[in-house]
């Protein structure tokens, strides 16, 4: 393993994050506060408690997931797309590194940034609602796994994209609808039976359900299934990345 290379990539990527630390910090605090003002206070006051949890508190896991998933994808896709766009990718391709090292460096940095923002949102949320975390280790595991798996997806998006429009295509057209329809702001049990079934084909449902369970012990689907889903998704992304580097698809001619 070329540990020096992994560290170099990781540090280089994190430097970009630290250059804009204020933005990285202020933006999630502001958007989370807005969500709580609008959904938690204005609308939430008219919504009953969901299985014993106030609406404001209920949406916290979903809100964290929403930001973490979007940021993981954008961080990782930007991280690898930018060198392609600038042409600096030549250095990566000519360096004594294999794809595992490249992925650990880029995906690790993207996931770290998303994790940081996830924690910022969690802390911000604690100022607005009474949070309780019943399974802190499971919560941490779900959070880290989500950051990692969606950073892997972002990495794939970054390699696939050949322009900036395509970069935002997947997050906006695919991931945003999946997250909003995945029970971020509601329990699946609130939907009509037909839609409950349809929803089960949405992979994000498993993610949010498992994450919410780690907070309040409430789950739409069994926790084991949630873990299995996220592990399967991570495995799938890894397999795609392995194939990309084996064939050189979109990166090596």
């Amino acid at each position: 393993m070329n540990w020096a290379a992994i560290a170099a990539i990781y540090r280089f990527e994190m430097a970009r994050f630290f250059r804009t630390l204020a933005q990285s910090f202020i933006s999630p605090v502001l958007s989370t506060s807005l969500y709580f003002v609008v959904f938690g206070t204005a609308i939430g006051s008219r919504i009953q408690e969901i299985e014993g949890v106030s609406y404001g508190a209920f949406i916290v896991p979903g809100l964290i997931m929403l930001s973490v998933v979007m940021l993981s994808i954008s961080n990782a896709s930007f991280g690898i797309y930018f060198p392609k766009f600038l042409g600096t990718v030549y250095e990566l391709l000519s360096a004594p590194v294999n794809f595992i090292e490249i992925v650990i460096g880029y995906v690790g940095a993207a996931a770290t940034k998303a994790l940081f923002v996830g924690l910022v949102i969690l802390v911000t949320a604690s100022f607005f609602v009474d949070l309780r975390i019943e399974h802190p280790f499971a919560m941490a595991a779900f959070l880290v796994l989500t950051c990692l798996s969606f950073s892997l997806l972002g990495f794939i998006v970054g390699i696939w994209a050949s322009n900036f429009e395509q970069m935002s295509l997947v997050p906006q057209l695919v991931v945003t609808p999946l997250i909003f329809l995945g029970g971020t702001f509601y329990s699946i049990s609130m939907l009509p039976p037909v839609w409950q079934t349809v929803t089960l084909f949405n992979p994000v449902v498993y993610l949010i359900s498992g994450f919410r369970w780690s907070f309040y012990g409430l789950a739409d689907v069994p926790v084991g299934l949630s873990l299995l889903a996220i592990a399967g998704f991570t495995g799938l992304c890894l397999a795609v990345i392995w194939w990309i580097f084996r064939t050189g698809w979109r990166i090596r001619s």
């Binding site: 070329n2 020096a4 290379a5 990539i9 250095e91 990566l92 360096a95």
Partner: peptide, 8 residues
């Protein structure tokens, strides 16, 4: 520095 690290 990045380049040096990248090359191990």
């Amino acid at each position: 520095r990045f380049s040096r690290g990248l090359f191990g």
